[in-house]
Design a protein around this nucleic acid. Structure first.
Length: 607
RNA sequence: GCGCCUGUAGCUCAAUUGGAUAGAGCGUCGGUCUACGGAACCGAAGGUUAGGGGUUCGAAUCCUCUCAGGCGUACCA
């Protein structure tokens, strides 16, 4: 019986919500009631509170407390909760029964799928997540960090919930800058001039950093030499026409760039791979149709020589309709055009149900207009169903001075260098705390802690606000940081190792366990929190907010610490030991799952 | 000018979108304990949620007006 129970496991919150909705409906005769069940604001109110009664009472112009009485009379939650209590203006407070919590934990323990008892989505969707999107021919910098890792967490969470995720790395691999760069590489950056450009660096050491160097030089010539500029434009045309040697050179530039991006992705533990690259160039041949189709729909018109759509509700400085420009007066296309082409491709070819764009908040207007124009053209619909388009925004990474993070010389901070420093700093901490570990182990821990710290600090902030980047804070051992979480995990693993060395067979002790004793308050507290992991994931998913997950994990670690201080595990009385071992084991598994599976942050067995 | 966003404890941030007495972590102060990893636990102080007005059973959250900052606002992405 208990073995299969996890398959049916819904979160307690969902069950209570459903049942209270039903009770509200039968008390009032109205179908679509919302119970609005939330975790309580204060533990003294129990575990969950239903907030929906007050609104419903207003609608029926009745006394909310009386209505609450009627609803509670219709409500049967005895299998989960103690008797519901009505409080304040009409809240229904619910407190989980220890027996129910125990059955949940046993269900999780019996789940052999590594899903920790969490059910999959019953109606899975196909979802495009568009994220990272670095520019080709430049190194990734701190400006790419948030899209890359927030997007990755979204992918991991959606996938875990059972959706089919299509990652799309919409890289900037097309545009006039490539004509410039190719021109420079063909005619100026010849072997004979290597020495001058690179101070004697041999050609086989050519890396992305060198390309940036070339890029800057090319830009200088482009701006100062009209002949160079003209020839560059011709190369853009050649590239568009598919002239072979030009395309080959372009491809080399793209490959070199993406190889280095891949290194950064790998270090970051980001799941992006080469096959997810679908950059601007991919849509190149689909752009004319975007414009002509919009013209045919009578949505696009010429204005000052440019082809524009004027979506309703957008104004420019003069209060005139604001254009969504899809073709410039010189005939070139813009990212508006590319993004529209991408919408069509994703809706019609990839057949998605939802597209999630993870880009910074400054592009909010662009996406509002894109979504509006897509809707006007009907390009967000397929088979009569509307594809959901969502823009997940985020704020900037700031330096200690409160301004966008830059190097002293005002350059963008390279992601590679940022990660190097994080690992370096983590290494010296490990060195200090645990000098006797083998060097290789220390290096592994430093990587996990350093990279983890950077990622966790980002995830734990509300994505919409800016945050101040501080190595000291993110690498602190106390507080809501990666090292604290990793430490909590390592400490549990240490107990488990110790248990094994004392001859305790944990797997055996936990296998087939069929009852728990959660009589200590800190045991029950921890147990309840463990059983709510699914709720944390769900809330993080629906709002695309990784910080809901990090706060859950942090609270878990705190509750574990309280339990650990109050309750001996290995020296527990024999009848209590299985319960406590189970609490340890589930805590470790939950932390590991949250950090490593959903956030891509490595855990370590020792630190 | 217009639009969007932000303003919460000394500092860094939460607050699941209208719920109860606004929560954490650092830092500060005080306590516990010869420790299954003390990188711990328990507690205290600290708030007119930038400010005024409004909406209602109820507001950090919605509306309105000020103030301060950020971003965007026709051919970059």
């Amino acid at each position: 019986m208990i073995i299969d129970y996890w398959r049916l496991m819904k979160t307690a919150l969902d069950i209570l919500d459903e049942r209270i909705c039903a009770a509200m409906a039968s008390a009032t005769g109205q179908d679509d009631c919302s119970a609005i069940v939330r975790p309580t604001a204060d533990p003294k109110f129990g575990d969950y509170q239903a907030n929906g009664i007050m609104g419903l009472a207003k609608q029926f112009k009745t006394n909310p407390r009386q209505l609450a009485e009627q609803v509670v009379a219709q409500l049967d939650v005895g299998d989960l909760c103690e008797a519901p209590e009505i409080a304040g203006p009409g809240f229904i407070n619910l407190r989980l029964k220890p027996d129910y919590v125990a059955s949940q934990l046993l269900g999780i323990n019996a789940d052999e799928t590594e899903r920790l008892g969490i059910a999959q989505e019953s109606e899975p969707q196909t979802v495009v997540v568009d994220f990272s999107s670095p520019n080709v021919a430049k190194q990734m910098h701190v400006g790419h960090l948030r899209s890359t890792i927030i997007g990755d967490a979204i992918c991991r969470i959606e996938e875990f919930l059972g959706h089919q995720v299509i990652r799309q790395n919409h890289i900037g691999d097309w545009g006039t800058q490539f004509g410039m760069l190719i021109n420079y590489m063909f005619h100026v950056h010849t072997a004979s001039r290597m020495e001058e450009v690179f101070e004697a660096k041999p050609q086989d050491a050519f890396v992305l950093e060198d390309m940036e160097h070339l890029y800057r030089r090319a830009k200088q010539e482009f701006d100062s030499d009209p002949e160079f500029a003209e020839r560059s434009r011709r190369y853009v045309v050649d590239l568009q026409k598919g002239v072979q040697n030009v395309v080959r050179q372009w491809r080399e530039i793209v490959d070199l760039s993406m190889d280095e991006c891949q290194e950064v992705y790998n270090r970051l533990g980001v799941t992006l791979k080469k096959e997810h690259v679908c950059g601007e160039s991919f849509y190149n041949n689909k752009l004319p149709a975007v414009v002509s189709d919009l013209e045919a729909l009578a949505l696009a018109e010429e204005s000052d020589g440019a082809m524009c759509v004027f979506p309703e509700g957008f104004k420019n400085k003069e209060g005139q309709p604001l254009p969504f420009i899809i073709r410039k007066s010189d005939g070139a296309y813009l990212y508006a055009t590319t993004d529209l082409a991408a919408v069509r491709y994703r809706v019609n070819e990839l057949k998605v149900d939802r597209i999630v764009y993870v880009t910074d908040a400054r592009q909010a207007l662009h996406f509002q207009m894109l979504f509006k124009v897509g809707d006007m053209a009907g390009w967000n619909r397929r088979d009569g169903r509307t594809v959901e388009l969502a823009h997940v925004t985020f704020g900037s990474v700031l330096g200690e001075n409160g301004k966008p993070l830059k190097t002293r010389s005002g350059e963008n901070v390279k992601l590679k260098e940022l990660l190097d420093e994080a690992v370096e700093r983590a290494k010296s901490v490990v060195e200090e705390k645990n000098p006797d570990l083998p060097a290789e182990r220390k290096a592994e821990i430093a990587r996990a802690v350093g990279i983890g710290a950077v990622k966790y600090a980002d995830y734990s902030n509300n994505r919409e606000s800016d945050y101040v980047f501080s190595f000291n804070k993110m690498l602190a051992m106390d507080g809501n940081t990666a090292p604290y979480m990793q430490y909590a995990y390592a400490r549990i693993r240490s107990i488990e190792r110790k248990a094994e060395s004392k001859g305790v067979n944990i797997a055996q002790e936990l296998h087939g366990i069929d009852s728990l004793d959660l009589s200590e308050p800190s045991e029950l507290e921890l147990g309840k929190h463990l059983a709510r992991y699914g709720e944390a994931i769900e809330s993080a998913a629906t709002d695309y907010r990784p910080n809901y997950l990090t706060s859950y994990l942090f609270e878990l670690a705190q509750k574990f610490s309280a339990f650990y201080t109050n309750c001996p595990v290995l020296d527990a009385p024999p009848e209590k030991r299985p319960t406590r071992l189970l609490l340890c084991d589930l805590t470790a598994r939950t932390i590991r799952h949250g950090l490593s599976e959903l956030l891509g942050i490595a855990v370590v067995e020792q630190m």
